[in-house]
């Protein structure tokens, strides 16, 4: 027995959510519509239907370049983020209470701090006169400042640092859910630490790795701030293209088509990633 049994109540309770989510789906459908509308010059949208916007996107290596660069950059950054994130998560898992609290606090602070601020902070570190270059120059390790800012490397560094917490949390959670004595059981049967890590710990944390990789890949694929601040226009990604087309060229139909492509591509990648991880996650 709940608060009541009449169907009227749940409908009433769900009404506000229906309005909000309904509006969301309404905007999505409008975007679909606009993406097949003809563009009649800046901020002028025609009435008919056309596939020109999509043809324009897929027909040009220039536009496709944004998509492929985004896919590629996000792919290798996600891989690096996964390795670093796993290391950090494993470190947290193996640490005593005190270190765990400290590291946890630092990660939560990162999590709660706006991307803009964290990206800007990275810029202050890797910039031409940033602390990194100044200390490397000062130590005599390099002779000229490293060009990191406004390069793909700089963008990659920023994306990895900014998305690291998203990777760490799910992996820590899955490390903690490994049944407590399983590692010791493996050791008593003769498995070395390395062996235990690869045959027990990694397989059992596969769900955490999968969750982290999916979230981080989606986030990095559609990054706007990091390429914007650290790429300085030289390393623009797909989100930057959409914004520029919509807000600077006022070509809403093309921007809507590019957004649709982004949505479908990211949906497809998530689907493929999940399929892949279902294959490599051992059944239990």
């Amino acid at each position: 027995m709940g608060i009541g049994q009449r169907l009227g109540w749940p409908l009433l309770f769900l009404l506000p959510a229906a309005i909000v989510i309904g509006f969301f789906f309404f905007t999505m459908s409008i975007m679909v519509r606009i993406s097949v509308a003809p563009n009649l010059g800046p901020a002028q949208i025609g009435d008919g239907f056309t596939s020109d916007n999509y043809i324009q996107f897929f027909g040009s290596t220039f536009y496709l370049g944004y998509l492929f660069r985004s896919l590629w950059l996000a792919a290798y950054c996600t891989l690096i983020t996964a390795v670093l994130g796993y290391t950090l998560a494993y470190f947290i898992h193996r640490s005593g209470r005190r270190t765990r609290v400290l590291v946890g606090a630092l990660l939560v602070i990162q999590f709660f701090t706006a991307y803009v601020i964290r990206t800007y902070a990275v810029m202050l570190v890797i910039g031409k006169t940033g602390i990194l270059n100044r200390s490397l120059l000062g130590a005599g390790i390099i002779e000229r400042p490293l060009a990191l800012l406004f390069t793909e490397t700089g963008v990659a560094i920023g994306m990895i640092l900014v998305s690291l917490p998203f990777m760490v949390f799910p992996i820590v959670a899955s490390l903690q859910s490994i049944p407590p004595n399983v590692e010791m059981a493996a050791a008593s049967l003769g498995a070395s630490n390395t062996r235990i890590f690869w045959t027990v710990i990694v397989p059992l944390t596969m769900p955490g790795i999968a969750a982290g990789i999916v979230v981080v890949y989606l986030f990095e694929l559609t990054s706007y701030i990091v390429p914007g601040v650290l790429g300085g226009g030289y390393v623009d990604m797909i989100a930057n293209l959409i914004y520029a087309k919509a807000m600077q060229s006022f070509d809403h139909p093309f921007a809507a088509a590019a957004a649709m492509v982004t949505l479908l591509v990211s949906g497809l990648t998530v689907y493929l990633l999940q399929k892949f991880f279902r294959l490599v996650t051992p059944r239990t």
Binding site: A17, M28, I30, Y224, I242, A256, A259
Partner: peptide, 23 residues
């Protein structure tokens, strides 16, 4: 349905709102 905005990239959500409002 309620959770679906989570899997839609922010740039797409913003774009959808923009074209809707201007429409």
């Amino acid at each position: 349905l309620i959770l679906s905005p989570l899997i839609v990239p922010q740039v797409v959500v913003g774009m959808a709102f923009l074209v809707t409002l201007s429409g």
